[in-house]
Structures are given as C-alpha cells and as structure tokens.
Design a protein around this nucleic acid. Structure first.
Length: 294
DNA sequence: GCCGGTCAAGGTCTT
DNA sequence: AAGACCTTGACCGGC
C-alpha cells in the first residue's frame, strides 16, 4: 500500500507544472518552462523517496501545450535524457506513478473533433510515461465523460471509442467513478465490455453510489485490475465541512481516514490523497498506516 | 514588488 | 438562453 499526493509539493519553492499563456507561446519559452518543470519534478521525487511517499501524480502541464496544434517542437527528442533519468529514478525506488488529464478530455463526446483532440492529449500523457520507460502499472486516469442527455448512448459511445484507441493508450488508461454522473456500477458495466481497469475514488463513491458498502465497492473495482496493471489505484478524500457537497477537504480528517482504512482491511491498494494541502496530509496518512501495521 | 483579473480545452446545473 | 460553477495555481499586465 503506497500513499501519494497529486502534482505539487507545497513545501518546496518550485513547481513542476509552470506553464504560460498560449499568446506567449514560443519554442524558447517552452524549453525554458519544461527545463524548470523537470528540474522541480526531480526534486519532488527525491523528497517523496526520502519521506516514503511512494505514489505520485505527475502534472499534465509538465510539457505545456504538448498536444496543442501550436506545438511543433520535438520535445520528445529534446528532453529524452531527462525523461530517461527520471524514469530510472522512479524504477530504482519503486515509485508508483499516475497522471490525470483534466475535464476537457472526453472520449465519449458526440463531437468527433473533440474526441480526436482528447485522443491526442491521451497520447501525450502516455508517451511521457513511455519515454520514462515505465511499465503498464503507470496509469492515466480519466472520467467516463458527459451524459449528453442520454446515458446509455453515452456509455455505448465510450465503449465504441475506447476500442478505437491506440494500444499505447489502452495500456495505461483507467476510468474513475465521478461524483455526479457515472458511478461505480456504470464503470463496472464499461469495464466488463472492454476490460478497462477502474480507479476507485472513495469520496466520489460516497457522493454517488448504489448503496454498496465500501469494502464491496473496493473489491469489485479491484477485480478489474490485472497483473500487468499493478495493484489497484484509488483516490481518497473527504468532505470539506460546511462546504458544498463534493468539495474536497483542505486537510486530512484523521478519524475519517482511519475508518476508511479499517473498512478496507485485507485489501492492498495504492492511495492518492486528493487533499488541498498535499504532502502535509499524505505524511499524516502514512503515519496512520504505519502505526496500524505495528 | 504586489495585486487581482485571467488562463486551451467542455459539460452540467441553475436561473 | 445565458451565466455560474467545477477547481485551482500560476501567469502577467498594470500599478
């Protein structure tokens, strides 16, 4: 069981996802930014290894505009040594890696152009992990997408478009249950058809479910992960008090986390904490898990 | 230097 | 039909 946090480390004075506006796009600007991002990513990974935080989500903005038509630069070649070096470090220290393209990646859109753009974005993510030499346990997670007024059709379109994806993307793509449209059962239905693993989000499941107990839900998601995919990845968060339903907490709720871990006793999975204060909460989660092991 | 409006991309929900 | 919200830090121009 590995604990992680997404993209940014707040106790460091650098960011691995510095980007820039499209209006300022230039090759030299891109190179400058990516150099900075890679340097910072290396520092964060070192921090993670030192602190035993062995799960990490790499920012989608590592190479800004990589899949955008404006980018003609061969960043894959230019930075190949850095990607290799980072990949070696990840493998040497047995870090688990994920990426999470944002809400604009929709492979079930009725608009074929939008699907194509989404595929390009997925290819960028997967290529990055390929260039690092990581195996298929490094995953790229997305949501199922939009409903477009007709859920069965939206699910069917996901399945049809999924089948058309390049193998390099299929190797890494996983789907995550969301908090208001596609629940675990919907994801399971898709997974049964195409074999895509389900990244289980416990907080989303709390917001939208079919009354499955947590352990039942975790087990059904876990069985969608095959050996080559590695052990199941999960997202964890809890409700921010006094805020709108679905709002992620700013700081880990220790008792809530402990109860969650206890409800999942006997299962092995990696946990990504989607909590605002990042590594701070992740370190606490790690302490709880370590203490429980003794 | 600091402040605050703005930033590639879509979809859903509310009014 | 139009605007708010999602979610969010960082960028960048204006002061």
């Amino acid at each position: 069981m590995k604990i992680g946090y997404p993209c940014i480390n707040e106790s460091m004075n650098c960011t691995p996802n510095s980007t820039f506006r499209l209006s300022n796009y230039s090759e030299s600007n891109l190179i400058k930014k990516v150099e900075n991002n890679l340097k910072c990513l290396k520092e964060i990974l070192r921090y993670n290894v030192l602190n035993n935080l062995l799960f990490f989500r790499i920012s989608s903005d590592l190479v800004p505009f990589a899949s955008h038509p404006v980018c003609k630069f061969n960043w894959e070649h230019h930075f190949r040594k850095d990607f290799q070096e980072i990949g070696e470090y990840i493998k040497k220290n047995k870090l688990r890696i994920s990426m999470h393209p944002d809400q604009f990646v929709l492979i079930n859109s009725p608009n074929p152009e939008l699907v194509q753009k989404s595929v390009e974005e997925l290819k960028y993510h997967c290529e990055l992990l390929d260039l690092m030499g990581l195996d298929n346990t490094a995953k790229v997670q997305i949501h199922v997408g939009g409903v477009y007024g007709d859920k069965p059709s939206a699910i069917q379109r996901f399945i049809d478009n999924y089948k058309q994806l390049p193998v390099s993307v299929k190797n890494r793509l996983v789907i995550e249950n969301d908090d208001h449209l596609f629940c675990l059962q919907d994801c399971l239905q898709i997974s049964q058809q195409v074999g895509v693993p389900i990244l289980f989000d416990s907080f989303h499941h709390h917001c939208l479910n079919n009354h499955e107990p947590m352990l039942t839900a975790l087990k059904s998601a876990a069985q969608t992960w095959k050996k080559k995919d590695g052990i199941m990845m999960t997202d964890y968060s809890s409700q921010q008090p006094h805020a709108k339903k679905g709002k992620h907490t700013t700081h880990i709720d220790i008792e809530h986390f402990r109860a969650y871990i206890n409800s999942a006793k006997g299962l092995n999975f990696d946990i990504m904490l989607e909590i605002k204060d990042k590594e701070k909460s992740a370190l606490l989660a790690l302490m709880i898990i370590s203490a429980d092991d003794i």
